[in-house]
Amino acid sequence: MLGYLTKRLVSLLASLFVASVVIFSVVEVVPGDPAAFMLGMNARPDTIAALRAELGLDGSVVERYLAWVGGMMRGDFGISYTYRTPVADMIADRLWVSLPLALFALTLTVVIAIPAGLFAASRRGRAGDYSIVGATQIGIAVPNFWFAMILILIFAIQLRWFSAGGFPGWQDGFWTGLKALVLPAVALALPQAAILTRVMRSSLIEVLGEDFMRTARAKGLSSGAAIWRHGLRNALIPVLTIIGLQFAFLLAGGIIIEQVFALPGLGRLVFQAISQRDLIVVESVVMLLVFAVIMTNFLVDLAYVAVDPRLRRRA
């Protein structure tokens, strides 16, 4: 077990290192000098040089890379070229929208998909199964941002149950904030729930064909009890992988949905930064997203150990 964990940990650190090098190099190849760009056409060379020093743009590539990584480890993501404020503060503000949104959507996804997949698999080949499989076919085909627009059309414009966009912040209370995230979370979650339902269904169907399910029936468990006590946990192993991938997708996919609902999250931040060529912000947000994906995969690996005793080797 310790061996497995060390291996995962080493691979986590290696992934983070290589990812940071890739991101840093991509941004390095951008032509132009951010300092000159920020100060405009008529800036004096010595002003530009001073700003370069302030932004940490002096020094060799390796020095700048180390400064960037070292800064991030201390929570210092640098200074925004456009707003001249610390990037870390900007990201922190936006994370309060993006992270709850992703978690909300993930919760919805799991809460919908696991029972639906369970239901379909246990009624394989019957009407209930066919309708769920049909619904997931359509669910997978729906682009989430289009679904978001339709939700706005129905629930905001027609029914006026929710506002069409914007975010009041958390200071007015948890429920006010959460209510503003309901439509975005549903828009994000439903297509993902369709995918997860299919994974859950096929995983469970595969497990149902295993010999130990026959053993369970031969013990005297009813078919429902056999699924519940022996099928479910085995079927969840591949489902975990997909949930991990989906969290990453929801975090990144939130970027588009934030556009539809005009939510002040990471997505808005990164699109503004792109149009203003505020590369340090883009670089930081991308690194943060990649960090989240890699960490999620690591957590999924840990969850495997909890679910699957075959990974817990005795010393």
Binding site: T215, K219, S222, N234
Partner: peptide, 29 residues
Amino acid sequence: SEKEMCQIRGGRIGMIFQEPMTALNPVQT
């Protein structure tokens, strides 16, 4: 009935199978 059969299976009739490697649930003791 199926419910009565569940009482029979494992209670009054036991059964073992060919493949011991796969006949036990891998995630339970």
